[in-house]
């Protein structure tokens, strides 16, 4: 999803807001499959520290990624509100461990501002947009960038 695409959309888009590494993010609801309670995963050998392991989701083996660690933030401490957000990205199903999931937001495209820091050094385009909700800035995540870097590591 590019900034122009976001700007062109004049209809409402639904997002799920969530917290990872103490910060507020939101993810488009259409890519979310389900939200599950955290349960112990099977760790993978020699994997990146952001990859917690694999989990059994009704017979599929899905990798669980610590979203905070993946975004370069301190690793998520498991708390009572920690949940796994199961997302579909392309053909892949992946679980993201987050601190908490807050609510479903309907956001008008015109309220989304492009991320002015995008493209600068050290920013690999994970945040594609910014939106202000009740005085808090939420960052809109581009999930495909999370998987793409994932694929490189897996390969």
């Amino acid at each position: 999803m590019t900034d122009t695409e976001i700007a062109d959309k004049s209809k409402m888009t639904e997002f799920v807001s969530l917290r990872a590494g103490g910060q507020g993010y939101c993810v488009e609801i259409t890519s979310i499959r389900e939200i599950r309670r955290w349960r112990t995963v099977t760790s993978l050998p020699n994997a990146d520290k952001s990859i917690l392991g694999v989990m059994n989701l009704r017979g599929s083996v899905i990798p669980i990624i610590d979203l905070a660690a993946r975004l370069g933030l301190p690793i998520t401490e498991l708390g009572p509100r920690s949940v796994v957000v199961v997302v579909a990205i392309g053909n892949r199903i992946i679980g993201l461990l987050v601190e908490a999931v807050s609510e479903i937001l309907s956001i008008e495209a015109s309220d989304i501002q492009p991320n002015p820091t995008q493209g600068r050094d050290g920013n690999d385009g994970q945040v594609v947009g910014l939106v202000s909700i009740e005085d808090e800035m939420l960052k809109i995540l581009a999930l495909d960038t999370i998987v793409d870097s994932e694929a490189e590591e897996a390969a």
Partner: peptide, 11 residues
């Protein structure tokens, strides 16, 4: 169960 679909090959 294959790991390749959702994750990738692991040596």
């Amino acid at each position: 169960k294959s790991l390749k679909g959702n994750y990738g090959a692991i040596t």
